[in-house]
């Protein structure tokens, strides 16, 4: 029995190190492939070309006037009736209006002193409602 115990093991007791570099490169390539850089995000719009003014029938325009305090006045076409709403009411108004007139254009008129975030809120609501014909203007008068 004692003789058997003295048998030398044929298995090497060293960890194979020749393929270590291969493993390192494999990990490297894996992380290279799986890394994604954070993409820029935001609300995309298309600016009009310079001098490209288009005459639009006033029936097809819905005026959205943004006041400095964040209240929004909605005025449809030629009617003088003004409806006041918070920004989150725009989405429902647009959906309702566009179902009756598919050619509707949203004219977003922001007061010069109004914070940018209110304009973004309205633009957000219009984007959420699927509006594509949006005109960004400055409110005058």
């Amino acid at each position: 029995m004692a003789v058997l115990d003295k048998k030398k093991s044929k298995v090497s007791d060293k960890v194979p190190s020749s393929s270590m570099a291969d493993i390192a490169f494999l990990l490297l390539i894996f992380f290279l492939v799986t890394t994604t850089f954070p993409k820029d995000k935001g609300l995309a719009i298309v600016l009009p070309e310079e001098g490209g003014e288009v005459a639009v029938s006033s029936q097809n325009i819905i005026h959205i006037i943004i006041q400095p305090n964040g209240l929004i006045e909605v005025q449809r076409g030629e009617s003088q009736n003004v409806q006041t709403t918070p920004a989150n009411g725009i989405e429902a108004i647009w959906r309702q209006e566009v179902s009756t007139n598919p050619n509707l254009i949203a004219a977003v008129k922001t007061h010069p002193g109004a914070p940018y975030k209110f304009m973004v809120d309205v633009l957000d609501a219009l984007h959420t409602a699927g509006a594509e014909r949006i005109s960004l203007q400055l409110f005058e008068g």
Partner: peptide, 17 residues
């Protein structure tokens, strides 16, 4: 940053932004 629910990722190469 202003916040918006309809925020989308911009489908454009980083060098073109």
């Amino acid at each position: 940053w202003p916040a918006a629910e309809a925020t989308q990722k911009i489908d454009e190469k980083i060098k073109n932004i």
